[in-house]
């Protein structure tokens, strides 16, 4: 079973109102690797993570995590499955009424009966791993964006999960924290034998850590492969995204009526006769 994929997504369909977000997505996420899911903003990458985490229910298709169909589990079984996952939110999503230490201790306190001294040791170990052992007494409001994300990462790995979902880990980071996060994700994955799913549109950083990539656009997987194969992919949709070209199959303009009509009103009548 060790080579079986950790997550299998089959024929996934999902809409919000009239807006179709996914139209038949198929993916296989291998165990113990970093898999990146990329795509332009608004393609529903975060939605995909929420579907994997069982917070949203697809209209069609299924998501199987380690042999369990996420959306057929009871509420209780789903919460048990979630103990094996960690998720890093874009905003960090730290609990604002707890300090850094208690935020990282939270999963340990609710899911284990460990004595306080052991909780303390584990929390300090996790905080040491993200370099914030000294910040344990700060409140979330006192942290910078990058620090908040590192604390959230320490919290996400507190229970030593088998899977971590990263939601846009690099967005809005200065180059230094970006470098720190890239290194942390890579190191954690190797050290803890995790399966990681990174959702991102930061190409350089993502290509440097991913073992395998999926590119989604228009509700479908448009390409997948290793970073090398995607870099040389000739599909215009893929190369526009990978090379960051402003215009291409993904248009620069939001759909609108013709420009001259919008500015001038009705076109001038042509004279006849």
């Amino acid at each position: 079973m060790i080579d079986a994929p950790f997550i299998e997504i089959e024929d996934l369909h999902f809409s919000r109102g009239d807006h179709e977000i996914f139209r038949g997505i198929n993916m296989t996420i291998p165990r113990g690797k970093v898999t990146a899911i990329m795509g332009p903003s608004g393609t529903g990458k975060t939605t995909l993570l929420k579907l994997i985490g069982g917070q949203l229910t697809p209209e069609r298709g299924r998501i199987v995590i380690d042999g369990q169909d996420v959306h057929r589990l009871s509420r209780k079984a789903l919460f048990t499955l979630r103990k094996r996952m960690g998720m890093l939110f874009q905003s960090g999503a730290l609990f604002s009424d707890l300090d850094v230490f208690e935020n990282v201790a939270f999963p340990l306190r609710v899911h284990t009966d460990l004595p306080d001294t052991m909780v303390r040791d584990l929390v300090l170990l996790k905080l040491q791993a993200v370099g914030l052992r000294g910040a344990r007494h700060l409140t979330p409001a006192e942290l910078s964006g990058g620090m908040a994300r590192r604390v959230a990462l320490a919290r996400a790995v507190a229970l030593d999960p088998e899977l971590i979902l990263y939601d846009e880990p690099f967005v809005g980071q200065d180059p230094i924290s970006m470098g720190v996060l890239v290194q942390l994700i890579k190191r954690l994955n190797q050290a803890l034998q995790l399966t990681s799913v990174v959702v991102s549109h930061d190409i350089k950083e993502t290509l440097s850590i991913a073992d395998y990539l999926y590119l989604i656009a228009d509700g479908q997987v448009v390409a997948h492969g290793t970073p090398q194969t995607l870099d040389t992919n000739q599909d215009p949709r893929v190369s526009q995204f990978i090379h960051g070209e402003p215009d291409g199959p993904v248009p620069f303009h939001y759909p609108a009526e013709a420009f001259y009509r919008d500015i001038l009103g009705e076109p001038p009548m042509t004279k006849t006769g």
């Binding site: 917070q55 919460f79 103990k83 960690g86 730290l94």
Partner: peptide, 22 residues
């Protein structure tokens, strides 16, 4: 509401804690 807006409720769910109970 603010806990919801800052994704604290979602992250609690992902940690495996039911925000309705907690």
């Amino acid at each position: 509401g603010l806990m919801k807006a800052t994704e604290q409720l979602t992250s609690m769910e992902m940690i495996g804690v039911d925000p309705l109970r907690r």
